[in-house]
Design a protein around this nucleic acid. Structure first.
Lengths: 179, 179
DNA sequence: GACTCATTGTACCGATCGGTACAATCTGGG
DNA sequence: CCCAGATTGTACCGATCGGTACAATGAGTC
């Protein structure tokens, strides 16, 4: 349900995702939509962001934080990223929201999401032996690389762009290449 | 004029940039807007993309292509990028268009813009001594880094994110650090 | 001054926007 | 079976959307 709404926002952006599109995609009328989300479109978007945030908490930030082998956590992050973004076919909704005016509405959630991604990754890299400052920079570079690659992959309509980027990412972060 | 319209699209996205917003920003009524752009909003966006593309052709792709010292061309690209994106305060309109549904309308222009950026940078890097395959990968990585950093900088609302990324970029591409 | 043609403001169009109201319907607990 | 509360479809709201029509005005040109 939230996943379907997320897909509509992902495809059309916050402004472009009209209630009729959302209703059509979910099979729900406005009555139901406003029953579950009395706050309307903004509340839907907020719930969708929270849902995505939860997924990343479980599948990305968690492993980064909890893996005893920090590099194994990084590898799990990369695999989760690859599967979530469908090797570049999918776009990062939160990244897209960060770019346009909807940023102002969701600034807190957006900042928190990217902030935690970078700090958890930096922590893992520091535990894997990088100097703290270097770990921070590497983490920031890695998250930016993923976001930028999503843009590039969409622009070029080329799936290889994304897999190449993940390969470079493993190299830069010191994760053994996948066999 | 085109610059003002560009700013509206940049701030609000393609869907969010209404004709009334554009009219307000430019001081032009619908009469004038449709006089100059009979094709309406789509033609405006197309013209804006072409305008930006021209700016990059002159200030980024050109130096990359024509500088006798390829690394000097790369340095000019980095400086032009920093000034164009106002150190991360501004967002890449073409990158934003690549993410949402407006991508379909402008797919050709978007692909061409990013394609030329990557290939011209790859050429310069190859001329500066990198092996061709490595140069391609580096170029792709660099353009993605810039795009992703714009997202991250917007999300964090932190200017330092962008300057750090440019510093790393100089290092990765072998350009002497700015003094 | 008269003619031309580019430019502009304004009124208007049907469609759709996000949101509200509310009656009808479903559904499980007593 | 009945009732309360959750759920739903539908009609409707004012506002705004992108776009059109057109008359008024502007600025040269001869």
């Amino acid at each position: 349900m939230l996943a379907i709404v997320a897909e509509v926002f992902r495809e059309h952006g916050y402004e472009g995702a009209s209630l009729s599109l959302i209703g059509e995609a979910t099979g729900l009328g406005k009555g139901s939509l406003y029953h579950f989300f009395p706050g309307g479109k903004e509340e839907m978007a907020r719930a969708v962001i929270a849902h995505i945030d939860g997924w990343f908490e479980d599948n990305v930030f968690g492993p980064l934080r909890d893996s005893t082998d920090p590099l194994a956590g990084v590898e799990r992050m990369i695999e989760a990223t690859d599967s979530y973004f469908r090797s570049g076919r999918r776009v990062c909704l939160i990244g897209a929201f960060a770019l346009d005016e909807s940023r102002d509405l969701f600034a807190g959630q957006i900042r928190s999401y990217f902030g935690r991604w970078v700090t958890h990754l930096a922590d893992a890299l520091a535990r894997s032996g990088h100097r703290p400052g270097e770990a921070s920079e590497l983490a920031e570079e890695a998250v930016a690389a993923i976001q930028g690659t999503l843009t590039l992959a969409r622009a070029a309509n080329d799936l290889d762009v994304f897999s190449r980027a993940l390969r470079r990412l493993r190299m830069r972060l010191g994760v053994p290449a996948k066999t």
